[in-house]
Design a protein around this nucleic acid. Sequence first.
DNA 1: GACTAGTGCGCCCTTATCGTA
DNA 2: CTACGATAAGGGCGCACTAGT
Lengths: 351, 351
Amino acid sequence: MIDDLERAGASVTVKRAGGPDPARSRLTMGDLAQLAGVSAITISRALKNSDLVRPAVREKIQSLAAAHGYRLNTAARNLRLRRNHSITAVVNMTPSADRPISDPIFLALVGGLLQVSTDAGCRLILTNADQLLSSRNDDTDGIIFLGQGSDDAVLREVNALGLPFVVWGAPREEGGGWLTIGSDNVRGGRSIGEHLTALGRKQLLFLGDPAYPEVADRLSGLRSATAASCEITVIACPFGRGAGMTATAQAMTEGWRGDAVVGASDTLAMGAMTTLLGAGLHIPHHVAVVGFDDIPAAATAPVPLTTVRQDWDKAGALLGTKLLQWVAGERPGGEMLPISLVERASTIGMR
Amino acid sequence: MIDDLERAGASVTVKRAGGPDPARSRLTMGDLAQLAGVSAITISRALKNSDLVRPAVREKIQSLAAAHGYRLNTAARNLRLRRNHSITAVVNMTPSADRPISDPIFLALVGGLLQVSTDAGCRLILTNADQLLSSRNDDTDGIIFLGQGSDDAVLREVNALGLPFVVWGAPREEGGGWLTIGSDNVRGGRSIGEHLTALGRKQLLFLGDPAYPEVADRLSGLRSATAASCEITVIACPFGRGAGMTATAQAMTEGWRGDAVVGASDTLAMGAMTTLLGAGLHIPHHVAVVGFDDIPAAATAPVPLTTVRQDWDKAGALLGTKLLQWVAGERPGGEMLPISLVERASTIGMR
DNA sequence: GACTAGTGCGCCCTTATCGTA
DNA sequence: CTACGATAAGGGCGCACTAGT
């Protein structure tokens, strides 16, 4: 009875009372249901490939939907399911040299992320920490932090949002509440140390700011593999090619005359290379140079750069997978990604 | 009366009939309304700073919302307003050398985009063309295409979605239906030509694939400024440092012995530089080198690179602004961004 | 009675419109 | 007229249920 009244009301109301501009309205499941001669829920199930709909009906509905260019209204689904079907990647976007994640790496990470998030039917939202924290909206299911830098306070604030939260970087002491995934920086530093030791290098210059946990790990790995045999001079400096140039020049001015430079990143190492070559030194005859990351430019540097490769694409995919598991209710553990040393002319070149 | 019945029904129904897991539910406007002793709509208005709510009430509600950590349910608002409050940036994410937009540029563009979209209360979604086209969802208000490459078919497909659509690149013949915004590539090429002509260079090598409209424009600008005075050899090659190295080597093998190389991008020019230096040539004494884009690495190349600067941050902001205007119902026109030549040692170095 | 394919209803949360004190 | 409230969408989907074998 109520049903009848409502139907009558609906058909009488030629001009809808409230609501936004109906001119922009698209095809809905209801429309599609009428066209197909079934109910809306059947459309829903058919488009989801549910077993509850016969294959024949399912196909008919799917082709009908395709023919009419039907697109699912995400807002309605999200509202009903209490999920946003989107995850957020937080990035420090300002183009500064002082950035722990360099550009090609960032793109590869995002590429991997995009792959898994799309496969899971999720959108990938890009933002930075300020925007994320100042938004008063509840529109994401989980957060991924790329390039944590050395700032714990921001991580804690983001964590306070109460969403699944995965950070790319070096794991801190436990208890943060979030999940950390990163490369095995200690092992990376160690393999550099072993390589240089095998080459008989004794006087190392390390470029990078140990305030970043990743950098500290790389340095400690390097130290552990070279303990007795090498002397290591550390110059704390930000990331970037310019910083590598400056730091190397500074070291030389201050009297450093070693036989190897290790950059905490490829950009740092390539900056060092520029300064060394400019000073008339031969690489690797006088000074060997090693980087970290294996960005594309490393292979085509003036002297191809020996460096530590990390599988960024896989890393991005792993970040996404873990976050999505967490969103789905599991509680996955952290993980370290393996690394591998790529030997090039900057350490093993012909003399 | 109906009201009373429903209230009674609600209070009796301890366990709700349908719906998803209620444990995960957050605070809603209704809850907040009860706490504040007003109706939900008043909460809505107060949080929007509407004049329809007294300032005193407004402030009380806002602080209440803040105290309880209330976050607006975006899905519900989007459903009601028939807007997604999100725009999509489409990017070719695969790390290939054959990419018309290099990484730092991409990040700067995205940074500018992020700025304006957030200011407008919009989320920025990142995706690639495949994902965008295969999605059967209707969850974005507009699309921005970064790095169109030479593939018109994809643009037409995206355009067929019927959403506001802005493309970064060189404008094509009219009638596409979408909006194109790009740098003034012709003028950029021309200023390179004028610069090299003033320096007395006569035999130019141009690296880049004219199949890309941007590249074709740069080349035609270069030609127009050097018409009588120069001979230009064109080597069609993809983007990237490696391609620049190979192409230059190829040109020299084939007998090219000119006095200037112009790369369609900085990466191409820097690759050329590597090959030239490796062949024992002096830059710019024997050969001047010019790039395009002014990526950060250009300033710190072995020989700092003369190049054409484009304001990427501003470009991203402009892309976003135009798209948002279109989303809001206006129909803004296309635009060209100004460029400027940055003269460095690769053309005006001491001899 | 057990099973399958499909239906009716209500709810998710916010906001435009109109009504009311 | 000012400040607030009641109502009704907005589109999709989970649950309980029914028609059919």
